[in-house]
Amino acid sequence: MSMTPFRYARPMALRDALADLTEHPEARVLAGGMSLLPLMKMDLAAPERLIDLGRVQELQGITETPDGIRIGAMTRHFELASDEVVGRCAPIVAQAAAHVGDPQVRHRGTIGGSLAHADPAADLPAAMLAADAVIEAASADGSRMIPAADFFVGPLVTELRPGEMLVAVRIPMLQGRRQHYEKVPHPASGYAVVGVAISLAVAGGVVQEARIGVTGVAGHAYRAHAAERALEGEGLNPGVIAKASSLAAEGEEILGDAVYASAEYRRHLLQVTLSRALQRVS
């Protein structure tokens, strides 16, 4: 397959990348290329300019911070899944990253690319919501912090503005929390038919705080607030789990497709999947 011709820039510094994006707001930012390049090959996207972030040093690397970790946008899924710091401080992120695509995709695809692409069935958005991550966005004018809960707006739509790019993700320390990512993959695409990421603070057998990120079933990944509230202040017993699971879709428009899974089935599957995730950590 071939693509429509385009201009290609490969800046070496973040400053240059941001300047390029300011100058060419119609440009698309290229990270691992695991979503954008297939779209271009299928003629579903035909950007006139690509800004390749592959050589931008500032976007690489995982660092521990006083209150958690900071993950550079160009960090590959494979690194997330196997990195010692991520595994210790944010296991839910490592676990979700291990579910992305296949080994080839995990070695190319990046956390920044996946989140900025905002596929409604991607794995990492659910983990970001459960982790209560903060997205660091930068433009030529400076940077700002966007809570993950506000970041995902619609299918392939995020809170990023024109001229802005995702440069890092900040994850608060999750050590000690009970967390798990439960996924039902689509047999063809491998994307989540349903994906549920949970992160619970439990003390004395009682859930102090619950965060549940859901992907695959709606126009974008979302926090299942009603289900979270049903858990908080309760023990993880079958009755509570059943109650919370039944609220997983509360307030959301669940979407279906005509080939594999209808909205009705996804709604059911979401309930089963959340229930299984909760049983897993109970």
């Binding site: 689509h186 047999p187 063809a188 695409s189 005509a258 594999y260």
Partner: peptide, 23 residues
């Protein structure tokens, strides 16, 4: 268990890629 071409009533192939058609 997995494979099947799905057309809509207008004759559009809905399972028209390896993202939809499960090998």
């Amino acid at each position: 268990l997995w494979e099947g071409a799905v057309y809509d009533e207008t004759g559009q192939l809905l399972s028209g890629s390896l993202m939809d058609y499960a090998l």
